[in-house]
Amino acid sequence: MSLALAHRASKTSPASLGAWASACLRAELETYPKPGLVSHRDCGAHRDMDASLLRLSATTLEPFFADLAAAGAAHAEMDDLRRIGIAAEKAMLRATGGVNTHRGAIFGLGLLCAAAGLRQRLGLNGRLGDIVTQRWGRAIGAATPNAASNGAVAGRRFRVGGARAEAAAGFPSVYAIALPALRSAHRMAPDDAEAARVQTCLALIAQLDDTNLLHRGGAAGLAFAQDAATGFLAAGGIAAPDWLMRVAAIHADFVTRNLSPGGAADLLAMALFLEPLEA
């Protein structure tokens, strides 16, 4: 990822924020091995998407992330943000031939872009997640979700909150799990940003009640994923000499079981987005 681009994003113009959000989606993709997830090396547990499709999707979404940042700076209501998000989703689906590559990221990263735009306009000092909660949290919580979506169905069945609850609460999993893991991983592997992203992804899988895992594997699939990730971290994570072999084996197990922690992937991208923006 470009340090210059991260620096421009820290200035929080809508265009730079849009470019940075898109870059973070590409960085999440360019991370291997992420158990069950698409990367530049393979398609993980997915049969309908690959790296080139995800790169196209990330590029397609860049102007919409910029629009969301501009809307946040203009004090937009949640309905206004939702209209931009719906337009982004339609553009994504047109570009990908109907494949849902980044719906969750449009929601989460889009809200963070809007919060960054608002923070800059008002000269605020608070965390972007807190701004999301304070400005749009009530509207997010009151919105009627897509009851037929895989995440919503899994959330109801297993009584977990999912992406909407995470956003309304200010993305606690990003701030409590992903960002600390990412910063710690950079200290563990200061010259290997990809390894730091792998470590962060495994930290999220270990603790997140990922509705994507619940949808694909039920409670047993989620427990398997969390146990595998916890074991990897307990054995030293990326500090262990055989870490790459071990996480590659976990990746293969996820693929065999058709498990894909899409929620962890979205939160990893959000952590990458926030890292240069949150002191």
Results as ranks from 00 to 15, higher is better:
residue 106 I to F: 02
residue 229 A to K: 08
residue 129 G to R: 05
residue 202 L to I: 09
residue 173 S to Y: 11
residue 153 V to H: 07
residue 54 L to D: 04
residue 279 A to R: 12
residue 96 T to P: 07
residue 39 S to G: 12
residue 168 A to Q: 00
residue 32 Y to N: 00
residue 113 C to I: 05
residue 40 H to Q: 12
residue 99 V to H: 02
residue 157 R to Y: 05
residue 87 A to W: 08
residue 247 V to C: 13
residue 86 I to H: 15
residue 233 L to C: 14
residue 251 H to G: 04
residue 15 A to V: 15
residue 159 R to M: 15
residue 109 L to K: 07
residue 68 L to Y: 00
residue 71 A to H: 12
residue 191 D to Q: 06
residue 204 L to A: 11
residue 13 S to F: 10
residue 163 A to Q: 03
residue 126 G to M: 10
residue 102 H to W: 05
residue 52 S to Y: 09
residue 276 P to N: 03
residue 168 A to W: 00
residue 45 A to Y: 01
residue 214 L to H: 06
residue 236 G to P: 06
residue 21 A to L: 15
residue 128 L to M: 09
residue 126 G to P: 03
residue 40 H to F: 04
residue 261 P to C: 00
residue 236 G to H: 09
residue 42 D to C: 03
residue 278 E to W: 12
residue 111 L to P: 08
residue 213 L to G: 09
residue 252 A to Q: 15
residue 227 D to A: 13
residue 86 I to W: 12
residue 46 H to T: 15
residue 82 R to P: 11
residue 228 A to F: 06
residue 49 M to D: 13
residue 36 G to V: 11
residue 241 P to L: 10
residue 24 C to K: 01
residue 125 N to G: 15
residue 43 C to S: 08
residue 100 N to I: 01
residue 18 G to L: 02
residue 131 I to Y: 08
residue 115 A to P: 06
residue 53 L to E: 07
residue 152 A to D: 15
residue 199 Q to H: 14
residue 214 L to K: 04
residue 83 R to I: 15
residue 276 P to E: 06
residue 226 Q to P: 12
residue 184 S to I: 00
residue 236 G to E: 04
residue 240 A to K: 15
residue 153 V to P: 07
residue 52 S to K: 13
residue 266 D to E: 05
residue 111 L to M: 15
residue 221 G to K: 01
residue 53 L to K: 09
residue 245 M to L: 14
residue 144 T to N: 14
residue 30 E to D: 10
residue 185 A to Y: 01
residue 92 M to W: 00
residue 78 M to D: 07
residue 161 G to F: 03
residue 270 M to V: 14
residue 37 L to T: 06
residue 156 R to N: 08
residue 108 G to M: 00
residue 131 I to E: 09
residue 123 G to M: 07
residue 44 G to K: 07
residue 126 G to N: 07
residue 93 L to S: 11
residue 80 D to F: 02
residue 62 E to C: 07
residue 240 A to W: 10
residue 223 A to G: 14
residue 183 R to E: 14
residue 5 L to N: 12
residue 45 A to G: 11
residue 24 C to G: 08
residue 78 M to L: 14
residue 158 F to L: 05
residue 265 A to R: 07
residue 242 D to K: 14
residue 191 D to N: 05
residue 58 A to I: 05
residue 61 L to G: 00
residue 220 A to P: 07
residue 104 G to R: 01
residue 98 G to T: 04
residue 3 L to N: 10
residue 141 G to F: 09
residue 254 F to K: 02
residue 122 L to C: 00
residue 133 T to I: 11
residue 260 S to T: 01
residue 197 R to V: 03
residue 12 T to H: 02
residue 279 A to T: 15
residue 214 L to Q: 06
residue 202 L to Q: 04
residue 42 D to R: 10
residue 43 C to V: 08
residue 12 T to W: 02
residue 130 D to C: 13
residue 243 W to V: 05
residue 265 A to K: 06
